[in-house]
């Protein structure tokens, strides 16, 4: 049992790192601009498709990754400059509905340009899996703990990028400007901060983060228009855990979510096995359970699990 739990945690952490990266972008955009970006997943997907196209043409993986992330950054900045600036300060509902419109547009565009056939994206990290055995005293069955190399390095990359960006937005000048804008737009403007640039930066970096998460998940999900839809829901959940406006909270919330999810599946499998329900697959319930966790968290603790000191902004 102990091994199963440890294994679940070990599977959960790499997933959680991706959820955290996705949640980071959502929180960053929300925290800075006050928009829940429902097009986050699909914007990232467009970036991944661009990367895939570059890979197909040049066969250079670094070029593909850089190109895809840059495309995502430009897309995000473009959304802010072309669409969002028109509705800023008007209504949150309006901005939200625009992102829903973008969600549909990107979905349709990807189908029109790249079709429905799943496209293969090769593993970014080619490393052997790690296999470890626990001492026999705690593990009488002798089951090994397994972690695939790609998962391990993806998780390391996702966490490094997430924490790097969190640090950037915490300590660099543009990052502090974005934070200042988030706390008090008028005040930030009064002390000479380019508020519009802060918004564009948040959108650009936020969408680029989604593209990165897309690249890291692409070897498993294949490259299809719906590849990031589920990841976006997990990103929302991670952001909800973290209090929605805190990028660091979202990264940590993501890791937590990854582990919870795998433990939930383990628990459900055990339960179903005990009940003798053989025809039901626990994985079918995985997303639903996670989403119910979102709804309950939102209802009981809307400020997030690690309620921060941040109390401005209505």
């Amino acid at each position: 049992m102990l091994v199963s739990i440890l294994q679940a945690i070990l599977f959960g952490l790499p997933q959680g790192a991706l959820y955290g990266l996705m949640g980071f972008g959502i929180s960053l955009i929300f925290g800075t601009c006050g928009v829940t970006n429902f097009a986050q997943g699909n914007s990232g997907m467009i970036g991944v498709f661009v990367g895939w196209t570059i890979l197909a043409v040049t066969e250079s993986l670094p070029l593909a990754l850089i190109g895809g992330v840059l495309a995502g950054g430009l897309l995000g900045a473009g959304i802010d400059r072309v669409l969002m600036k028109r509705v800023k300060g008007l209504t949150h509902g309006g901005m939200l509905i625009i992102t829903l419109g973008l969600l549909m547009i990107f979905d349709g565009m990807a189908l029109i340009i790249w079709g429905t056939q799943p496209l293969i994206f090769k593993d970014i990290f080619d490393a052997p899996p790690i296999i470890a055995f626990l001492p026999e005293s705690v593990n009488p069955e002798g089951m090994p703990l397994i972690l695939s190399g790609n998962d391990l390095w993806s998780a390391v990359a996702a966490l490094a990028i997430s924490f790097g960006l969190v640090a950037f937005f915490r300590w660099s000048k543009p990052g502090i400007a974005a934070k200042a804008k988030a706390q008090d737009a008028a005040g930030a403007k009064a002390v000479g901060i380019d508020v519009a640039a802060a918004d564009t930066l948040a959108w650009g970096v936020g969408v680029a983060a989604a593209v990165t998460a897309g690249f890291l998940i692409a070897p498993k999900s294949t490259v299809i228009p719906t590849m990031l839809v589920t990841l976006q829901l997990y990103g929302f959940t991670a952001a909800v855990f973290g209090g929605f406006a805190s990028p660091l909270g979202a990264v940590i919330g993501g890791l937590l979510l990854g582990v919870i999810e795998k433990l939930v599946v383990l628990g459900l499998e055990t339960l179903l096995f005990a009940l003798g329900a053989s025809g039901v697959n626990a994985l079918d319930f995985q997303l639903s359970v996670v989403l119910i966790i979102i709804i309950v968290t939102l209802a009981l603790k809307p400020t997030g699990l690690f309620a921060s000191k941040f109390k401005g902004k209505v």
């Binding site: 509905i97 349709g108 029109i112």
Partner: peptide, 16 residues
Amino acid sequence: PWLTVIIGGLLIVFTL
């Protein structure tokens, strides 16, 4: 897919 794009576009155009 075109329909999806059109409906999404209408959503944005009407909101704006």
